[in-house]
Amino acid sequence: MQPRRLEILPSFEHSYEELPQDVQKRTQDVLVLFSERTADNALRPELKNGFDNVWSIRVTKGYRAFYKKLRDSEGAIYCLFHVGHHDDYRILNKLASRVSVSINASRGGIQVSVQTSQPTASQKKKGKRRT
């Protein structure tokens, strides 16, 4: 499979310079992985709802790199324009929601039992659009 062609835009440089050093290093690694298409499951390319052709990939838990996917005569080109803080609160919510709570309030006492479950394949795919 051909590697992705990446274009680093000046605005990406601006935001990159404001990152902590460890996140800068991770950003470099992520760009290589993204270009090589070797870790898309971990990078989770995702189209941002409510924005025009804005995609994100995961740098760390709380950081994302953002790009627009354009085309030229040689094919797709991924124009990276921003990297910065970005949390997926709905994912956080889903993680929490996989914990099932059972409360037994009978006989004057309260018993709480917690069961965790793995996400199903459909839960994992829901809400995601891949490049």
């Binding site: 590697p3 290589v32 924005f51 324009f81 921003h82």
Partner: peptide, 25 residues
Amino acid sequence: RLRLEVKRAELINQRATVHARIVLR
């Protein structure tokens, strides 16, 4: 915030040139 950052990026890129076009193989 992301909406403002997207617009900010557009404004920066309008007045600056691209430094790197990278193809890794």
